[in-house]
């Protein structure tokens, strides 16, 4: 008899285990599930949503945001934050167009890339060595970079229509728009860096407990600087793509990019205290917000209510991710 009881008890236990496993899985992959649900709902809500051209539009529109989000992901994993994303974008847009107009050709792209990395190194050095809080250091960079962009971009917008760069960015390969392709390659590299390299392992450790990481021999300062440099590079890349899409340099873009990037990372399950974050979920987070905006546009919802809904989605996602055991 006791045997039967035991089996029954272990059955119960197993059932409970399955239940908690399912619950855990749902929690861990909430963004993905929510994203799929949104796509299905979008299909019903607007017949235009799941058409090829609309999907292409959503992908194209959100590639730039998603690249910024991936850059932000590195930084958030270390427990940091970068508020100057929009300013990087503005600087990159202005200088890319400016240098191309000055006839520097491909060199323009190289220079802007190096500039973005340099700005990242400056932020990272301030944070790692001068011990300035990331919030403050990057806030200062925000106004510095925007100031540089305004000084450089006097007067009129610089048109670069017909040059090699807009042609390249506005083109496509195998039917895939170039910016989407760049995003895809970026995603692969980011995933590789985070999952397969010593550097990636190191920044997860730093975000988890930087003191433990340091005592385990990880060069925390160096890794922090690399992280902000990588972030800077990706934010700059986003700006260069934007310049190509706009075919001009203008200092009026880039507003609020940092907030969208942070939102995507957080909706993707990362925590701002660091140590957690996944590239695929960040990507889904970025496109979740993008697709939602697109659906609401198609449904004819005005832009101000859209802002409210976006805010609610961010809070809901964060609450869903929260570890219930705490």
């Amino acid at each position: 008899m006791s045997d039967i009881q035991l089996t029954a008890a272990s059955d119960m236990k197993q059932k409970r285990n399955y239940k908690s496993e399912i619950l855990k899985f749902t929690k861990n992959n909430f963004v993905v599930i929510a994203f799929i649900a949104l796509i299905i709902w979008g299909g019903f809500a607007s017949p235009a949503f799941l058409t090829l051209s609309n999907i292409k539009t959503v992908l194209l529109q959100n590639s730039i945001y998603a690249i910024c989000a991936l850059g932000m992901l590195f930084i958030v994993i270390t427990g940091g934050i970068d508020l100057s994303v929009g300013s990087y974008v503005v600087v990159a847009v202005c200088f890319t167009a400016g240098f191309i107009q000055d006839g520097r050709g491909v060199l323009a792209i190289v220079i802007v890339t190096l500039m973005s990395i340099l700005f990242g190194i400056i932020s990272g050095t301030l944070i790692a060595y001068a011990k300035v809080a990331p919030f403050i250091a990057t806030l200062a960079m925000t106004t510095i970079l925007r100031g540089i962009a305004y000084i450089y971009q006097v007067g009129q917008n610089r048109r670069i229509d017909g040059t090699f760069w807009p042609k390249f960015i506005q083109g496509s390969l195998l039917g895939i728009p170039i910016p989407v392709l760049i995003l895809f390659i970026t995603y692969l590299i980011v995933t590789f860096l985070l999952k397969k390299t010593k550097y990636g392992r190191g920044i997860y450790a730093i975000g988890g407990n930087s003191e433990t990481a340091r005592l385990a021999g990880i060069n925390v300062k160096k890794y922090i600087i690399i992280t902000y440099a990588l972030g800077g590079f990706l934010f700059g890349l986003a700006g260069m793509i934007l310049a190509g899409r706009l075919s001009m340099g203008t200092a009026t873009v880039g507003e609020g990019y940092e907030l969208d990037a942070i939102a995507a990372v957080v909706v993707g399950g990362a925590t701002l205290s660091g140590g957690v974050g996944s590239p695929i979920k960040t990507l889904v987070g970025a496109f979740l917000i993008g697709a939602l905006m697109n659906i609401m546009n198609l449904m004819g919802i005005a832009s101000y209510p859209q802002m409210i809904i976006k805010g609610i989605i961010i809070v809901a996602a964060v609450l869903m991710h929260r570890d219930s055991s705490h």
Partner: peptide, 18 residues
């Protein structure tokens, strides 16, 4: 400063031997 609590056993064991 001995462990990274939110990470796996494996992550913690290999941390100083990367």
């Amino acid at each position: 400063n001995g462990l990274i609590l939110n990470q796996t056993i494996r992550f913690n064991i290999s941390l100083a031997s990367l």
